[in-house]
Amino acid sequence: MNVAIIGATGYGGAELLRFLQHHPYVNECMLYSSSQDGIDLSLSFPHVGEGKTLRKIDIEQIAATSDAVFLATPPGVSSELAPLLIERGIKVIDLSGDFRLKDGTLYEKWYKRQAANDVYLKQAVYGLTEWNREHIREAQLLSNPGCYPTATLLGLAPLVKNRFIEEQSIIVDAKSGVSGAGRQASLNTHFSEVNESVKIYKVNEHQHIPEIEQMLTEWNERIQPITFSTHLIPMTRGIMATIYAKAKTDLSLEMLVDLYKTSYETSTFVRIRQAGQFPATKEVYGSNYCDIGIAYDERTGRVTVVSVIDNLVKGAAGQSIQNFNLMMGWDETSGLLFAPIYP
């Protein structure tokens, strides 16, 4: 099978190439760029090696030579390219946020740009793999979840779906490495601004908030707006989402650990820690794993969930390949079964 990556010069595109060029069912991975066509990708990313020339975006050529296309493009670009590819019968996996929100007016409010056509918003399947496998298998347009929503939703799903927590009590304290901001240089990601500092940003206005709430209310229609705070940490990769919620009834730590292990017993890439153990971002570095630890405070009646992922892998490229595998009828772990890099 031949695949294409549009937007191969960003971090997400480079990670896609790193995995796809060794994927057991991918024969060729062609690279496309709107600004660097004709240039060898090794000039931007020497680690991928030479001989990978970026091509000019030509929809007809892409459709004629590719069975599936990964869109690793900025918001606003995918909404224009995806329909053209879908009309030509190509399966599309979009890593941007253009098709994640079903309500176009909500997208315009949070992303500050025009929404995609409603026809494609309705057609897009949300690719939170562990909880939407059946729909993903039938998808032609796959909307890959954001990095923060992936860590948060995987951490919350067992509690919300089983209605173990008060619907108005969810608080998420999330932290991300600098690569989550992309490769484009900015003052906010300048070394001297980020190093030896922790910074909160987009307080109460992060664009991933409605994406998280959309999924939570699909699982439980009584869920209320959440409190979601994001912080920039001086590290390259990783997300840690620390989630707090009030239990509806008395629980026990053993009950919660059993709930999570049962919920994810068929999910290779979600690993639940034993009682009293909590994951660190380093322990999933460079991998497609999401590691989760749980605590219960009998004094306050609150559940604490700690969920960690690599934002560029399980939060982007890795999860998109996991979804691609399902769309093609393969084992979802194909090309992704490798241990994290440590230390």
Rank of each mutant, 00 (worst) to 15 (best):
L31E: 07
S78F: 00
F45H: 14
S66D: 05
G76L: 10
F70Q: 04
H23I: 14
K56L: 12
S34K: 10
R55H: 11
S44V: 11
H22Y: 11
M30R: 15
E15P: 01
V69S: 01
R18M: 09
V26N: 07
C29Y: 07
S44C: 08
G38W: 03
E60Q: 12
N27E: 15
F45V: 15
F45D: 12
K52H: 15
D67C: 04
K52L: 14
K52S: 10
Q21A: 06
L71D: 02
Q21P: 04
R55T: 06
L20Y: 07
G38N: 05
P75F: 01
V48W: 02
P24E: 13
G51Y: 10
L43G: 01
E60D: 15
V69H: 01
F19E: 13
P75E: 05
P24M: 14
E15G: 00
G76Q: 08
S66A: 13
L54H: 07
G76D: 06
E80K: 09
T65M: 09
V26E: 09
L81C: 03
A68W: 01
E50H: 09
L43K: 15
A64D: 09
P24L: 14
L31M: 10
A82N: 00
L81A: 01
D67N: 13
E28F: 03
P24G: 13
A64Q: 12
N27D: 12
Y25Q: 15
P46K: 10
A63R: 06
N27R: 15
S33K: 10
D58P: 00
M30W: 05
P83S: 03
E60G: 14
D40S: 04
E28V: 13
C29R: 10
L20R: 04
P83K: 04
L54P: 02
A68Q: 03
S35P: 00
A82Y: 00
F70C: 07
P24I: 14
S66W: 02
G51H: 09
K56H: 06
K56W: 02
G49R: 06
E60I: 06
I62E: 02
I39N: 03
S34H: 12
I39R: 05
V48C: 09
G51W: 10
T53N: 06
E50D: 13
E28R: 14
S79P: 00
A72G: 04
V69E: 01
T73A: 07
L54D: 06
D67R: 09
T73F: 02
D40F: 04
L84A: 07
S44D: 07
N27Q: 15
L41S: 05
K52E: 11
Q36F: 11
L41D: 01
Q21W: 06
D67W: 00
R18N: 09
L81T: 02
E60N: 14
S44T: 12
L84P: 00
V48I: 15
D58Y: 01
Q61C: 06
T53S: 08
F19G: 04
G76C: 08
R55S: 12
G49I: 10
G49C: 11
S33V: 05
L81R: 00
N27T: 14
H22R: 15
A64I: 07
D67L: 01
P74C: 08
K52W: 12
L81H: 00
